[in-house]
């Protein structure tokens, strides 16, 4: 990881404002921002470890533990609720065998809340491994569950 960070800062600079882009890059590379990387990032950008830790923990996007092999982000915001989102949320947890906000024991899937994907006229919506899906119903959940099981 040290090499990766060095290479990245050589290309993009090592100023403080590069912290979020670097954290995104680290997460893209490793899947999560593990605690052991925090001191390396702090050194690379000349920040304190506490400072970097504070930023990592502030933003919902940064993971400190690995995600499941599949990530299902389900919208919980008002527009999706108006279209039956709460029932879909419960059904998704049941079909995928994992509670909202958790990763399943076997590491196959993470079910995460997201507050609005901007597809508000065609909800309930989800991002399944980065792929947007609209009008989620129980049939769509079955397809997602099958994808996860495969």
């Amino acid at each position: 990881m040290d090499e990766f960070i060095e290479g990245w800062t050589a290309r993009h600079g090592a100023t403080r404002d590069q912290l979020l882009p670097l954290l995104h890059a680290v997460q893209e590379e490793a899947g999560y921002v593990q605690d052991a990387v925090v001191p390396l990032i702090a050194r690379a950008l000349n920040l304190s470890r506490a400072d970097v830790h504070g930023v990592v923990t502030f933003y919902h996007d940064f993971r400190r533990t690995p995600a499941g092999r599949h990530v299902v982000k389900l919208c919980r915001a008002e527009s999706c609720q108006a279209r039956g989102g709460a029932a879909i949320e419960a059904a998704a947890a049941q079909r995928l065998g994992v509670a909202m906000g958790e990763t399943r024991g076997d590491g196959a899937v993470s079910l995460e809340p997201v507050y609005c994907l901007g597809l508000c006229a065609v909800g309930p919506n989800a991002l399944v491994d980065g792929r947007p899906m609209a009008r989620i119903d129980t049939a769509a959940l079955d397809r997602i569950a099958a994808e996860v099981a495969a």
Partner: peptide, 11 residues
């Protein structure tokens, strides 16, 4: 940073 639910014009 269009985070409001029900909005998607920026996007």
């Amino acid at each position: 940073d269009e985070g409001d639910s029900g909005t998607f014009a920026d996007r």
